[in-house]
Design a protein around this nucleic acid. Structure first.
Lengths: 222, 222
DNA sequence: CGCGCCCGTCATGATTTCTTCACGAGGGCT
DNA sequence: AGCCCTCGTGAAGAAATCATGACGGGCGCG
């Protein structure tokens, strides 16, 4: 059972590695987020234990990046902080569980086992592009610290655009996916209007919705 | 997010549709394999939920046929049976996941999300010649570090030329390909004008559009 | 029942793209 | 060489397409 341990505190790292090894795990210890990222992309781990505060790339950013790249490896986040906001931020970024230092090693083991049991697929997927992130489970978008409220239609269109990106979503495609009935909204400029609204709400996210004249739209990182 | 639900049990079908709709999906319910097949070939779905046992065409056969026809729509198979042999048969036929009845609706949702997260389907390959590259999915051309914007008509003509290359595309062919009505743009010099624009926009790509006097055009590596 | 939110439609203005036109430059054939 | 036809190209008008602000209806909620 291979485990990645991303922890910059040497002493804590050593303790973790020794303890895990005794339990029959095979831990790899890395000292910073960048290294963790490259290990994760290269090897296959059953679980990753990630410190929140790390050099080069924080645990939060690391997890967000993993998820953006489609990794489904369960992540247990370690942190010294514990406010509801922290917790939400961690879980939102894509961590699966959360442990506050100092922690009991037995509890760490218990959570590890829980993580392995839990199907990784149970976590809501997120589509992301640029600064923009769309959480399909909660149907919310985020970018920077803003979190604009999108209506159902806008969300549907944005979702389609993100899925096709950088490909083009043509008008028929949009109509079919967003409106049950395809025939609607085809002779009218309904789609255009929604696109305009979407654009204005997404101003400032690192994305640009380009119009492809005569065809449809495409979303790309700005 | 459009989903196909192929389920002959009316009660279960209704439950699925209602539940999915509440989650923001747009489900289409069909009662048998044949209908499912025709829906699948006509509309674009993000995922298909397919019952194993269905009238006319079983889920297994349906999936096998979809895959044979090149469909890459992720399939979640529902079944009452659960032996290793069944599981293998289902996955072998091309299903992506597998759920045994009776199942928890939450788990169904989780698996749906997991399926949607799968890497996007293979995109149509790009056409290329010399330095020039035409990506039909994004409707963009590239050569070197440039990326000129082509209009729809120009793109259509270029696509045809590239597909024919090094053969000749005659004027009728171009007219038919770009304007589905051939009669137009035949007595006029419209085609010539577009060709001129195409040439100027592609200056510097390693290609040359040759005129075949009295016939049409041909594109070749310069 | 009033209110707010969301959606579809309309009207208008701006922009891009298409087509036509005019004229000049070869090509090829006699 | 002379002639006819095809093609190249710049410019300009015409047409298509899109952006956007505003409006009214419908629906859910208090």
């Amino acid at each position: 059972m291979r485990i990645l341990v991303a922890e910059d505190d040497e002493r804590l790292g050593a303790v973790l590695v020794r303890g895990l090894r005794e339990q029959g795990y095979v831990p790899d210890l890395v000292p910073d987020g960048e290294t963790a990222a490259s290990y994760l992309s290269f090897y296959q781990y059953a679980v990753a234990i990630v410190d929140w505060r790390m050099p080069k790339l924080s645990g939060l950013d690391l997890v967000a990046r993993m998820r953006r790249e489609g990794s489904v490896v369960p992540v247990l986040m370690l942190t010294a902080r514990d406010t509801p906001a922290d917790r939400i931020a961690g879980l939102d970024a894509g961590a699966d569980d959360y442990l506050v230092k100092p922690f009991d090693f037995g509890e760490l083991l218990a959570r590890l086992r829980a993580l392995q049991r839990r199907p990784a697929a149970a976590r809501p997927p997120a589509l992301a592009l640029g600064e923009l992130e769309l959480d399909l489970a909660t149907r919310q978008v985020r970018f920077g610290d803003r979190q604009p409220a999108l209506t159902g239609t806008e969300l549907g269109i944005l979702e389609l655009l993100l899925r096709r990106s950088p490909g083009v979503a043509d008008r028929r495609m949009i109509a079919v996916h967003v409106w049950d009935d395809e025939a609607d909204a085809f002779g009218s400029n309904t789609i255009d209007v929604h696109l305009a609204r979407l654009r204005s709400k997404l101003a400032g996210a690192g994305v640009r919705i380009e119009t492809v004249r005569g065809i449809g739209y495409r979303i790309v990182a700005a």
